[in-house]
Simulated assay, not measured.
Amino acid sequence: MPEGHSVHRIARQFAEHFVGHTVRASSPQGRFAAGAAKIDGRVMTDARAVGKHMFLEFGGGDWLRVHLGMYGAWDFTGDVTVSATATLADDDAEGAEGRSDDDSGDGSPDRSAGSPIIDAAAEDSLHSIGAPRRTRLRMAEREKQGEDIDVFPPEPIGQVRVRLLTESSCADLRGPTACEVITADEVAAVIARLGPDPLVDSPEEGEERFTAAVRRRATPIGVLLMDQSIVSGIGNIYRAELLFRAGLDPHTPGKQVPEDLVRELWRDWTRLLVDGVRVGQMMTMDGLDEEAYRRALVHRDDRHWVYHRAGLPCRVCGTNIAMELVAGRKLYWCPVCQT
């Protein structure tokens, strides 16, 4: 499932190439024909993400809400900026720990610009904002660039729930959990049910909301971090990595986690989310030298401390990483480092 950084990157792709343009909306698959008709021919006026939800506003007051769920993805074609948000806007970066795009804050060199590095799944993670290209770009949990296109718009491929088309850019949505046209009041109601998002809420207010929500619950912290009403955007990978980085047993009840550690979880989530939006990948190991960093970009197994490493030795203590099912999802953790 795409985690928070992916949805923010997708929203910024829309902001870069669709906001301010008249959009033709259709449903090649047919399942969203009525919804598409409501927004067809209108100007897109806003694009924003909150956690795993994305909201696109159209002239007249209607919003398109999309939740990609486990299998959803957007395919962009035409004049599309590859990794359009490889660098955050200054206000986003300053709002998250006051760091600029030139400093990852983890001791690793900045790689937000320069030559791209392609990983084993053809994920091009290091394009900075640049001139748009007539190309294909799939944006979901992973980003994958396809071949450049010769004909625009291309024919829909597969089960396209909704197609959004401008004079030069096209976005096709497949397999979402939610895709609906709603009002501004309904958008506000959805957001009100969500926990704080470091790229939406002020850092101070978000930290207070998160800390209060965690500290009054007996639910294990490993479950709370996946609860979108507690905090927005954290999924299975970030959950495992945040807990390891904090040295925190995932079974600890929220109200038994020391307050200063809860606050540090929020601040670390802020750092990782900012870096994920900037780089385009869930890079959770810090302090890497140049060679190790490039290796991690090429191979996902070199990006994380514990995620997807069940039975392998902990990178710190050598103990085999444990895995168990928690709320239907696989939780990875170190029984020694996280006590």
Rank of each mutant, 00 (worst) to 15 (best):
residue 156 P to M: 00
residue 327 A to I: 06
residue 25 A to G: 00
residue 128 S to P: 11
residue 238 Y to I: 09
residue 292 A to K: 11
residue 193 R to L: 15
residue 236 N to A: 08
residue 251 H to G: 15
residue 232 S to D: 04
residue 168 S to K: 13
residue 306 V to P: 09
residue 256 Q to N: 14
residue 151 V to H: 15
residue 193 R to W: 09
residue 28 P to M: 05
residue 319 T to D: 01
residue 210 F to G: 01
residue 282 M to P: 13
residue 26 S to C: 14
residue 197 D to V: 04
residue 72 G to I: 01
residue 6 S to E: 07
residue 270 T to P: 09
residue 60 G to L: 13
residue 38 K to L: 07
residue 104 S to E: 14
residue 217 R to M: 05
residue 238 Y to G: 10
residue 4 G to F: 07
residue 188 A to P: 00
residue 179 C to M: 03
residue 272 L to P: 05
residue 179 C to W: 05
residue 240 A to Y: 03
residue 145 Q to C: 03
residue 268 D to V: 14
residue 337 C to T: 01
residue 232 S to I: 03
residue 195 G to K: 02
residue 93 A to F: 12
residue 9 R to A: 06
residue 2 P to I: 03
residue 195 G to E: 00
residue 175 G to C: 15
residue 161 R to M: 06
residue 51 G to T: 06
residue 229 S to W: 05
residue 90 D to V: 01
residue 130 G to W: 00
residue 29 Q to I: 10
residue 334 C to R: 00
residue 287 G to M: 05
residue 72 G to Q: 03
residue 92 D to Q: 11
residue 74 W to T: 02
residue 8 H to K: 02
residue 294 R to G: 07
residue 113 A to D: 01
residue 333 W to K: 09
residue 124 D to W: 13
residue 218 A to G: 15
residue 257 V to A: 07
residue 143 E to H: 09
residue 327 A to D: 10
residue 143 E to V: 11
residue 17 H to S: 14
residue 267 R to T: 14
residue 268 D to E: 12
residue 273 L to Q: 01
residue 5 H to A: 00
residue 329 R to T: 04
residue 24 R to C: 12
residue 189 A to Q: 13
residue 285 M to T: 05
residue 315 R to S: 02
residue 202 S to N: 12
residue 179 C to L: 09
residue 12 R to W: 08
residue 80 V to M: 05
residue 10 I to W: 05
residue 253 P to M: 02
residue 243 L to C: 03
residue 163 R to L: 10
residue 260 D to H: 07
residue 188 A to S: 15
residue 310 A to Y: 05
residue 293 Y to K: 07
residue 106 D to T: 12
residue 192 A to Y: 08
residue 64 L to N: 01
residue 215 R to N: 12
residue 299 H to K: 10
residue 94 E to M: 11
residue 59 G to H: 09
residue 113 A to Y: 02
residue 224 L to R: 08
residue 90 D to S: 08
residue 265 L to T: 09
residue 92 D to Y: 07
residue 129 I to N: 06
residue 230 I to K: 03
residue 201 D to H: 09
residue 113 A to S: 03
residue 34 A to S: 12
residue 283 M to C: 05
residue 252 T to E: 05
residue 236 N to Q: 11
residue 81 T to P: 02
residue 75 D to R: 12
residue 184 A to D: 06
residue 142 R to W: 04
residue 106 D to C: 15
residue 145 Q to N: 13
residue 87 T to A: 06
residue 26 S to V: 13
residue 171 A to M: 03
residue 285 M to I: 05
residue 165 L to H: 02
residue 54 M to Y: 08
residue 188 A to L: 03
residue 19 V to C: 12
residue 211 T to E: 12
residue 326 V to R: 08
residue 78 G to F: 06
residue 80 V to G: 11
residue 133 R to Q: 09
residue 217 R to D: 04
residue 154 P to L: 15
residue 309 R to D: 14
residue 206 G to L: 14
residue 20 G to F: 00
residue 333 W to I: 05
residue 308 H to N: 10
residue 318 G to P: 12
residue 317 C to F: 14
residue 88 L to K: 07
residue 121 A to W: 04
residue 118 I to D: 13
residue 19 V to F: 03
residue 72 G to C: 08
residue 148 D to A: 14
residue 224 L to C: 15
residue 103 D to H: 02
residue 122 A to Y: 15
residue 134 R to S: 10
